[in-house]
Amino acid sequence: MVALTVNGQSHQVDVDPDTPLLYVLRDELKLNAAKYGCGLGQCGACTVMIDGEAVFSCVTPIVVLEGRNITTVEGLGTIEAPGPMQQAFIEEQAAQCGYCIPGMMMRAQVLLQRDPAASDEEIRAHMEPNLCRCGTHMRIVAAIKRAGKLMQTASVDTAKRTG
């Protein structure tokens, strides 16, 4: 059994210690947001946040995650009460097929938690590891900028939730 903290909740999961976090999130905890894209750390579809850093969950075995705080898109808000990042992606309609989007949001979340006023150039450089095939990039950048603005005006509540 391995103990994990995901979106503020503790879980005990019964899987091999070499299991990549991605499969624990998706299959054990039934969380949909983190996606399988390459399993090689090349595309970013599986990106989650661990202790404030962006991590490829597909190449991160759970054996290293004891005591760490893992955040997924499910931890940013709900469909009823979307968080600023989610709200911004909806408002900008920043998706085509949308498959890469949760990974994009988590990587962006890491940047905006450090600097919600990140510039266009900083956003692009930061988002470099994540791939989109539909060509939604321009809207993704716009959504991240919007999310930054929303975060700057967001309530303390939201800040806590996305912590």
Binding site: N32, T72, I79, Q93, G98, Y99, P102
Partner: peptide
């Protein structure tokens, strides 16, 4: 606004990859 985007950005079961019927094998 597209009807599918809110689910896709909040962790909804939006794709075939997200389907997990009971008893499913991989």
């Amino acid at each position: 606004h597209r009807i599918d985007i809110p689910g896709k950005v909040t962790g909804g079961a939006a794709y075939i990859q997200d389907m997990r019927p009971d008893g499913m094998l991989h």
